Amino acid sequence: MPSSQQQDREAPRRPLSDFISAHVVSKDISYKALAARSEDPVTGQQVTDQWIRDVASGRLRRTPDLWRLRALAAGLGVDLDEIRARAIQQYLDYEVATVQTGDAEWVTVSVPPSLTPEERRRVAEMASEIARMMDKPQRDGQ
């Protein structure tokens, strides 16, 4: 029987699909209603409810175009970076961990997809600690 750590590493990763599905359920809205408010603020293009269903179900196999991600972010009412990170994880099997190190400063690091959630959390903490250590001499010298 595989350990829980092995199961974490072998489980299909569908962070964007799962996020959309959870949003639809938690907000008690239809895919059609979500599509109606999913307009790209740059191009004005809208995604269809069928496209959103395809993403949510995992049927969409290719990485969505940027305009579609912007439209989806607008419809979901979340930051584009959150949708982009979830799409990168799901379609490119590449994870990005971002840690805020100051009021307006962030550190972004590549995290191997084989790491468990606990290992990912530790990488983010280490990156944050390194950034704080590097910043301390600069603040002490001011």
Rank of each mutant, 00 (worst) to 15 (best):
M1P: 09
P2H: 14
S3G: 06
S4G: 04
Q5M: 14
Q6M: 09
Q6S: 09
Q7R: 12
Q7H: 11
D8F: 15
D8P: 01
R9A: 12
E10L: 13
R13N: 09
R14G: 05
P15T: 07
S17A: 08
F19C: 02
F19Y: 15
I20A: 01
I20E: 02
I20V: 13
S21R: 14
S21C: 11
A22I: 08
A22C: 08
V25E: 15
K27N: 09
K27S: 13
D28I: 07
I29R: 02
I29H: 07
Y31Q: 13
Y31A: 08
A33Y: 14
A35N: 04
A35I: 07
R37N: 09
R37F: 05
S38F: 03
E39P: 11
E39L: 10
E39D: 09
P41A: 07
Q46H: 11
Q46P: 05
Q46A: 08
T48W: 01
D49E: 10
I52A: 03
V55H: 00
S57T: 08
S57Y: 11
G58V: 04
R59F: 15
R59W: 14
R59T: 12
R59D: 15
L60M: 12
P64C: 06
P64H: 02
D65T: 12
R68Y: 06
L69N: 00
L72N: 01
A73T: 03
A74D: 08
L76E: 03
G77W: 04
G77L: 06
L80Q: 05
L80P: 00
L80D: 03
E82Y: 11
I83S: 01
R84G: 12
A85S: 14
A85T: 13
R86V: 03
A87C: 05
A87D: 02
I88V: 14
Q89N: 10
Q90S: 06
Y91A: 09
Y91R: 10
D93E: 12
Y94V: 08
V96N: 09
A97P: 00
A97W: 03
T101D: 07
D103P: 10
E105P: 00
V107S: 12
V107L: 12
T108I: 09
T108C: 12
P113F: 04
P113E: 09
E118S: 14
R120M: 05
R121S: 11
R122Q: 15
V123W: 06
V123L: 06
M126L: 13
S128W: 01
E129M: 07
E129R: 11
I130F: 11
A131G: 00
A131N: 00
R132N: 04
R132L: 01
M134Q: 05
M134A: 06
M134T: 02
K136L: 04
K136N: 03
K136W: 10
D140Q: 08
G141P: 05
G141W: 12
